[in-house]
Every structure is written in C-alpha cells, then in structure tokens.
C-alpha cells in the first residue's frame, strides 16, 4: 500500500493501484453524517439490509444481524429504508452513542 506522503519516485506510475483488495484500506465511514442504530428486539434477521448494503457494512454472525461496520458505513440509510419491521433508525452523527 502506498504511503499517504509518498514522493513521486515511490508510487506506481500512471495512477495504477497494484495492491489487490485495497478497498479495505479506504475507510469510507468518515463520510457519514447519520449512523444506523438497530433495535435487536425488533430485528427478524431477514438480512435484507445485508443484501442491499452498498458498502458490505452489515455485520452478520451465525446468520444473525449483529450490527454495523462503522469504519466503512457511509450512512446512506438504505438499510433503514428497506427494513420491513423498522428496526433500524438513522441517528445524526452528533448523537449516535447514547
């Protein structure tokens, strides 16, 4: 992976990225303005959110939805929109941790 402050002699020519799977290094979570919060009591584990999340940010363990990968979640709200039981709420970034 190219270092952020690398000089022109140290980086691949032509803007090419020669490391595979590098999307993992790009933490799009910093783009987020609203954060999804799930109510596990309501969730029926239909996994529609897991199917539709454009950033593969739904955390699933043993076929159960257990939360979000917030380093990558952009806060688009598709999961909240699609949830058939309204178990996901989008909370403004300023007050997500309560």
């Amino acid at each position: 992976m190219v270092k952020l402050n690398a000089g022109w002699r140290e980086i691949p020519i032509g803007g090419k990225i020669v490391d595979a799977g590098n999307a993992r290094e790009y933490e799009t979570g910093s783009w987020r303005a609203t954060t999804p919060v799930v109510d596990q009591e309501e969730c029926i584990n239909c996994l529609l959110c897991w199917i539709l999340c454009p950033d593969s940010s739904i955390d699933v363990k043993d076929e159960e939805m257990v939360g979000f990968h917030l380093r990558f979640c952009k806060g688009c709200g598709i999961c909240a929109e699609i949830c058939p039981v309204d178990a996901i709420e989008m909370v403004p970034e300023t007050e997500p941790e309560e």
Binding site: A6, W8, I11, I13, G14, G15, K16, I17, V18, A20
Partner: peptide
C-alpha cells in the same frame, strides 16, 4: 495472478506526483 487497478480517482493528494512522473 497480479491484479491491478487502472484509472482510479486521483485527487490533490497524488495527481501532482503522477504528473511529475
């Protein structure tokens, strides 16, 4: 066997280095 990406976004953080190349 050696995957590579061509033509990704290249903003203010690296574009100038690529021009220098």
């Amino acid at each position: 066997d050696n995957p590579v990406t061509y033509g990704p976004l290249d903003f203010y953080d690296f574009y100038m280095e690529h021009k220098r190349q």
